[in-house]
């Protein structure tokens, strides 16, 4: 069969094929609201499954149960209280981590000695998961807020450092030469060439960092905690309240999404000089 198809002689005269468009190799045009299709599909499956009785409420509560539970939790104030505590921890950790990560990246990106001293330890920290550090941090700092904020800080500073450092190191050397030819003082060089040049890297690091802050939060709040969303979920586990656990999960997801969206908004504003394929 195949052989006969292959050996069939081609027509001697080329047939006009101009009207036929070329095959598209790229992914094609964007689908309107494409980002929502996956999540909405998942939600539909979940709702249909619960309504049809395929999903045991003890395994997975129905979406409407989760909504009413969320309403109850808001009504009695538990959700807000725990969210406030969690947000404070994540916010503090994010602030410390961002400042420390940026300062370390500058020290390491602008001087060979800084790099020699700092880069190794940070790469090592990067390879150690936050959970593995917690026992040590508990021994040092107890189970209080310090331990929690420090764990988040450590989780945040690594992506901020890595991406800012990379941003610094990939600044075009031609711009450095330009600075030298204009005899820029170090302060001006830093302010007008180094920092803006490293900004895209820094903001990329921030996108990882904000999501990372919430992720570290999950870890610290489910171990030895008496407040926060993670604690609320852990308590619900003990009482078998699937709906409360799901409220917590959805909340974590939303928080991550909102913070990432906020950084992307800043990114678009701050990097408006850049015209990339994404725009």
């Amino acid at each position: 069969m195949t052989a006969s198809v292959l050996s069939r002689p081609r027509p001697a005269v080329a047939t006009p094929t101009a009207a036929k468009p070329r095959r598209r190799l790229g992914p094609g045009r964007a689908i309107p609201f494409g980002a929502a299709i996956g999540p909405v599909g998942l939600l539909t499956l979940w709702a249909v499954g619960s309504a049809a009785g395929w999903l045991d409420p003890r395994t997975l509560s129905a979406p409407w149960t989760v909504v009413t539970t969320a309403g109850d939790l808001i009504a009695n104030g538990r959700l807000q209280d725990n969210l406030a505590v969690s947000a404070q921890r994540a916010g503090l950790g994010l602030a410390f981590g961002t400042v420390i990560g940026t300062v370390l990246a500058l020290a390491s990106g602008l001087s060979r000695w800084g790099e020699a001293i700092l880069d190794g330890p940070i790469q090592i920290k990067r390879a150690i998961p936050a959970v593995a550090l917690i026992p040590l941090l508990i021994l040092w700092l107890g189970i209080g807020e310090e331990m929690k904020v420090l764990t988040i800080t450590l989780g945040v500073l690594v992506p901020v450092y890595i991406h800012t450092h990379n941003g610094l190191r990939t600044i075009d050397s031609r711009y450095v030469e330009l600075g030298e030819s204009l005899r820029l003082p170090p302060g001006t060089f830093l302010r007008r060439i180094v920092l803006p040049g490293a900004l895209p890297g820094f903001l990329l690091g921030m996108r990882f960092a904000v999501v990372g802050a919430w992720l570290s939060l999950v870890v610290v709040e489910q171990i030895n905690s008496t407040s926060g969303i993670g604690y609320m979920m852990d308590l619900a586990r003990q009482y078998g309240q699937t709906d409360v656990i799901i409220v917590g999960l959805v909340l974590y997801g939303l928080l991550g999404l909102i913070s990432d969206g906020a950084v992307r908004l800043v990114q678009r504003k701050a990097l408006s000089w850049r015209r990339t394929l994404a725009d």
Binding site: R174, Y175, P196
Partner: peptide, 17 residues
């Protein structure tokens, strides 16, 4: 190459030094 800093507006590029 003109070597303008892409993240600075034209006037800031001129007054860089």
């Amino acid at each position: 190459d003109a070597r303008l800093l892409p993240w600075q507006r034209i006037l800031d590029n001129v007054t860089l030094g």
